[in-house]
Design a protein around this nucleic acid. Sequence first.
DNA 1: GTCCCGATTCTA
DNA 2: AGAATCGGGACT
Length: 168
Amino acid sequence: MGKKLTRSFFNRPTIEVAKDLLGKYLIKGNFVGEINEVEAYDGAIDPACHSFNGKTKRTEVMFGKPGVSYVYFIYGMYHCFNVVTEKKGNGCAVLIRGVKPISPTNLKTNGPGKLCRAFNITKKDNCIDLCTSKNFYIEDRKVIPKIIKTSKRIGINKGKNFEWRFYY
DNA sequence: GTCCCGATTCTA
DNA sequence: AGAATCGGGACT
């Protein structure tokens, strides 16, 4: 249907990728959602970013190829889904915070934890290359958000000043 | 091994 | 405002 996002889309400055992900379609098996809320995490200057204090087993994937999924477990009960951005080694990613459910339309997908629960995204979906996967990827269906809103990020205690949450 | 905290969500 | 709930990471 749409065109799958390629490596070069993700291999750009994280803020740009974050904004450009709005209106794109997330595909996970039979689940489809239009991305409408994201947050940028730039490991170079952002203390809230998991990769800020260097590479660990968990954050290793963030230092890898752009376009690869970074899924982590949080608060003992939720998963959060990110896409790695920028060139290998930079440790940056975009958190997908919410989508508008397209298929099926009754899913509750407003919020990173709820999105992962609805789309069945778990640790086994960590480290998946979204540029080559057949059942987990993001595509462009030529939806252009008219107005992109910006705000501070949700639920963090560091890097509070960055206005790196984008939604519409 | 121990301890603290977290990119959330739901209830009130 | 508080609870639920447990893995990651820093530190001993």
